[in-house]
Design a protein around this nucleic acid. Structure first.
Length: 650
DNA sequence: AGCACGCCGACT
DNA sequence: GTCGGCGTGCTC
């Protein structure tokens, strides 16, 4: 009887390949060992995922494996199984996900020092863990599940201090039950103080694992872990895949942060991956949030896994200022807020999520608007270098001196960006020291450190930032925060737009210092009555949630239905168009229970020249979506990124 | 991902 | 007439 193995290769292949095992190797193959085998015209190493005696159908010419690389499985069954589920769920390559679990190839000899670690915010260590009774009882519950070796899922919602206490106490529970802890952070810049807290509270130094570490220090940290010296790993996405035995607790910090999703190949969502891994390890997964996503909140409330910790800082006074009622660029409330803060010698942070000087130039005579010659997007104007810069594909053009269409001599700017706001603030507050924090001026790590450093030392009175600034977790708190046009994000035809706007506002508002006497926030907007903006201004998540969930219900959006956004990438627009239409046709044939939107062109993000086409799937259940994805994408043969939103309310 | 086979432009 | 560009398809 011939023995066969199914092999998953660490390449973007959407299926595995079956090989015959020569008799002399048959004793050495088992799931989890690596083998070398001929793949096409080359030889590649892959992971055995199944050993069996079923020959593939006669039409396929089965090859023999060339060699077995490991004496015993390098990956345990739990890793094989959880990556299989994740690959199926995301319609990405199982082998590529397994590739993330394999030890990295030996590091090349060190050429030059690459220790460009961003300086950690030298915060003093105050160990005032807010272990309230809510934290203690949630931790005890988590501990009981861990002790029983049961898989369970929790969503924990609370303020900053309460969350940190929660992470600490839940970790203590796991360690007490001799199980290990994996903490997945969206942003590695936030590691510093959590690491010190865990070490001080639990007496054990967590290991740090993230992609931006040098291969050397990664290997060193992983060494500590595998020797059993570290019982807690703090890591970014990639840490999820480490074949580390004994995990009893997986914590996903800041659940609503979108960087838990990895878009590039292999694409996957860490939140989903953490769940699958916890299932396989009989571990508890805890999602921690300062403001949960609507989907997970609805679900946790429905199935009883929600734990509310409280402990939020007292909300600042937020004024929503209607700019339609006034004619100056800055509304009166905004001017007074900034002026008051300046007079008291406080720090002001101003958010406007629009790069450049103007979002477009416009000919007042014929209505012409310059667009990108490469990708067709409307071109924003950057005054700093007097050029039109395409934000979609990065192409730059000279500013036309006259209208290319009718020859009119002036093109007018429309839609002010941070550069225009900087100009305005300079005029209104001539003495103030300004700095701008956007991709153009803080694109590189060194510039970010410089600007934030100056601001932190009090050498900047008003810091103007785009969304890039919202992501700076270690930004020293401000006394006054001014927010301009949060409604800009609402223009996107995406059911998540209100939720994103709400989340963004909450994060911006939280940049104010709780203890400050001059603490205040002004939101200047053209949509002062939008429910998301209103709710955010009162820091009222429940209010936002109840409005939003009702709208989702009325429109049949997740979590009332299941949805997937599928983005296909390719160079050739015609091929992309053809294949995406075939795909859509196929999915539509599944009947009336499946709704297919598109294909339509998506914005050309990332590398120039790569076109993107988007499709949207909506169905009754997540399982139905999974079925459609696997049935469709396997033979399209184009790289795809899948973002899923599950439905679970009937 | 890699690698080969394919069909259109400038050239020893 | 060939060399070689990278678009397209395949890998048990």
């Amino acid at each position: 009887m011939t023995l066969f193995v199914d092999v998953a290769f660490p390449r973007p292949l959407l299926r595995n390949y079956t090989y015959a095992v020569p008799d002399d190797l048959s004793g050495r193959v088992q799931p989890g060992v690596r083998v070398k085998a001929s793949l096409g015209r080359q030889t590649a190493a892959g992971v055995v995922v199944r050993v069996h005696d079923e020959p593939p159908d006669e039409r396929t010419a089965v090859k023999d494996i060339a060699s077995v690389l490991d004496a015993s499985p390098i990956l345990p069954p739990s890793i094989l199984e959880f990556t299989r589920k994740l690959a199926e769920y995301q319609a990405s390559s199982w082998g590529a996900l397994l590739g993330l679990a394999l030890p990295p190839p030996p590091a090349p000899p060190l050429k030059r020092r690459t220790s460009r670690n961003e300086p950690e915010a030298a915060e003093q260590l105050e160990l005032d863990l807010e272990t309230t009774s809510a934290v203690a009882s949630a931790a005890a519950e988590i501990g009981r599940k861990i002790g029983a070796g049961e898989h369970a899922e929790f969503l924990v919602w609370g303020g900053r201090g309460a969350r940190r206490a929660m992470i600490t106490e839940a970790s203590r529970q796991a360690l007490d039950h001799s199980r290990n802890v994996l903490v997945l952070l969206p942003d590695i810049a936030r590691t510093g103080d959590l690491r010190f807290h865990l070490q001080a509270a639990l007496g054990t130094a967590p290991a740090l694992l993230h992609g931006r570490m040098t291969p050397r220090s990664q290997a060193a940290e992983w060494d500590r872990v595998s020797r059993g010296e570290a019982r807690i790993i703090l890591g970014s996405r990639s840490a999820l895949f480490k074949p580390w035995p004994g995990i009893g607790l997986i914590i996903v910090e800041d659940e609503s942060d979108e960087s838990h999703f990895q878009a590039d190949s292999p694409s996957y969502d860490v939140r989903r991956g953490a769940l699958f891994r916890a299932e396989e390890e009989n571990a508890v997964v805890v999602y921690v949030a300062g403001a949960p996503t609507v989907g997970s909140y609805a679900r946790a409330r429905a199935d009883g896994s929600l734990r509310i910790l409280g402990g939020e800082d007292p909300a600042p006074l937020v004024r929503v200022s209607d700019e339609a009622a006034e004619k100056d660029v800055l509304t009166r409330a905004m001017r007074e807020g900034i002026a008051g803060c300046l007079a008291a010698g406080g720090r002001t942070v101003v958010f406007l999520n629009r790069r450049g000087y103007a979002s477009l130039l416009f000919c007042p005579r014929c209505g012409f608007i310059p667009r990108c010659g490469k990708c067709g997007s409307v071109l924003p104007y950057h005054k700093k270098n007097d050029r039109l810069v395409c934000h979609a594909c990065g192409t730059e053009e000279k500013r036309p001196s006259a209208c290319p269409s009718c020859g009119h001599r002036v093109l007018e700017p429309r839609g002010g960006g941070v550069e225009a706001l900087e100009e305005e603030l300079k005029t209104v507050f001539p003495g103030a020291r300004l700095a701008v924090f956007d991709r153009d001026r803080a694109g590189r790590a060194a510039d970010r450190v410089k600007i934030l450093g100056a601001y932190g030392r009090g050498r900047v009175d008003i810091l103007i930032g785009t969304q890039l600034l919202v992501r700076q977790a270690d930004l020293p708190p401000a006394d006054f925060v001014g927010i301009f046009h949060p409604e800009a994000g609402l223009a996107f035809p995406d059911f998540l737009a209100p939720e994103r706007t709400f989340q963004l506002l909450i994060r911006m508002i939280r940049f104010t210092r709780p203890g400050s006497k001059r603490r205040g926030v002004v939101i200047q907007t053209g949509f002062p009555d939008h429910y998301g903006i209103r709710a955010a201004s009162r820091a009222d998540f429940e209010a936002f949630f109840s409005e939003e969930i009702e709208l989702r219900r009325l429109l049949g959006q997740p979590p009332y239905t299941a949805k997937a956004e599928v983005v296909l990438n390719g160079r050739d627009v015609r091929l992309l168009g053809r294949k995406s239409r075939i795909l859509a046709e196929r999915w539509r044939k599944f009947g009336p229970k499946v709704e297919v939107l598109g294909p339509s062109f998506a914005s050309e993000a990332g590398r120039p020249g790569i076109k993107r086409v988007q499709l949207e799937l909506r169905a009754e259940s997540a399982a139905a979506i999974t079925g459609l994805l696997t049935a469709g994408l396997r033979d399209v043969g184009l790289p795809a990124t899948v973002v899923r939103h599950d439905g679970f309310i009937r």
